[in-house]
Design a protein around this nucleic acid. Sequence first.
DNA 1: GCAATAGTGTCTATCAGACATTATTCT
DNA 2: AGAATAATGTCTGATAGACACTATTGC
Lengths: 257, 257
Amino acid sequence: MEEQSDATRNGTSGPPGLHELPHESFVPVNGQPSEAEQYDVNQYERPSVTVDVLMMSLRQRDLQTLLIKRRSWPYEDMWAIPGGFINMNESLESAAKRELQEETGVQDVYLEQLYTFGDPGRDPRTRVITVVYFALLDSERLQLRAASDATEVGWFSVYELPQLAFDHQEIVDYALNRLRNKLEYTTIAFNLLPEQFTLRELQRVYEIILHKRLDKRNFRKKIVSTNILEDTGAKKMEGTHRPARLYRFNPAAEHKL
Amino acid sequence: MEEQSDATRNGTSGPPGLHELPHESFVPVNGQPSEAEQYDVNQYERPSVTVDVLMMSLRQRDLQTLLIKRRSWPYEDMWAIPGGFINMNESLESAAKRELQEETGVQDVYLEQLYTFGDPGRDPRTRVITVVYFALLDSERLQLRAASDATEVGWFSVYELPQLAFDHQEIVDYALNRLRNKLEYTTIAFNLLPEQFTLRELQRVYEIILHKRLDKRNFRKKIVSTNILEDTGAKKMEGTHRPARLYRFNPAAEHKL
DNA sequence: GCAATAGTGTCTATCAGACATTATTCT
DNA sequence: AGAATAATGTCTGATAGACACTATTGC
């Protein structure tokens, strides 16, 4: 931290503060033309910016995340969270959606910005700052596209991950934490279920993510009391036992958990 | 979003995914030397990355934030959140600390990453992605450095801000939201108070941030029950009335609110 | 009738919120 | 005595968690 302060005081090694830059310091890209342009912002070294997308879904009664296998240095043959460079004309969220689309073919899923990781040294090739997004996919729609790409991809239990490249384990930990917290006070869980589901299935979502057993009666009481569920009238029969009611999430009833 | 997908399919306009790049694609900066380096990552256009720091403090019984006045296009003469380019060898957090130090001379304050803003048009000069940090300063230490810099800086009530440059109003809104939420379930509020404080002062912090009156008895009951306060034995006498006990925050008692 | 899961209610402890009076200091 | 703020407790309604039995289906 002290080195950086020095670098800043030294006018030649670091750029001045952006918001203090005089008018002439920039070549406007899509703004009005400026009077003088003696100063090119490109003379400064810039980090690379990537957008990674941590996708999570419930598969085989497990919370799983999609990883891709690296085929080159660094971290050759290790698994990593999918991501890519940001294009100059797309928003961060668009880049995340693009990545999501490329890897899974799925659109319109739950997506939120998770955190930005940018330690120098996290990528040995060059300075890479990664804005990480976090997506939740419902298991049903996901079945469609199994293995499609040339690159090796796979779904892994977040509880039994292989060794991950870069600081990606830290990212998964961060995401899992966020997911668990949001589970308690938002309706985020519904993004992991198909449109219709039983209360038992919803409970299972909570149990898998929180990684603990929940009491059936208390759980149902709590969910039902919020009025966020709509009885579809339909029932789901599987196995040799009493069929379960199918519900649908009603986002209109914005009664928080 | 659709344009970006096109751009991606068009091999010449966008870079390949970072994590899929073959080994030879990079000039290692501080890694092992690679066998072949026909590919220079610098050929791709890169966004600028800045780190902005939204500083908040309690001043004059008000929640205020530090802004600097812009002196050039764009948004000339408007107020903005302080920030600057990131140096290639410093972490995001180090950059935020550097900015904090430059603007206020203060160190060791509460600092957390808030969010990353990166819409393509948010700065008309060039593509700028800003990682925003959020700092809380205690009012007492802050008195020391009043007006020091050449650039015009000022503290403004978050509730009566002037028109802000760029998307900075959105950033303030986001920060205020985060602060309010964290107030309820963390001990973040103590960062806005000096080492010793009265319960009334603590209550005032909550009232100012939540922007509503709180019941004195309920507030004290709740705080005291968490055991996060330590009675210093000292009292604070001001005005012609009964003096108030001075407390100190005890971080050891990690009893969440 | 057996296996298997769906569906349901009560009691208790804890917490949040409404609410008014006494205590201490200075002038 | 009066002004000003500190300090304190009770009641009530809501919520969370522990806990066990009946209902429906297929075989």
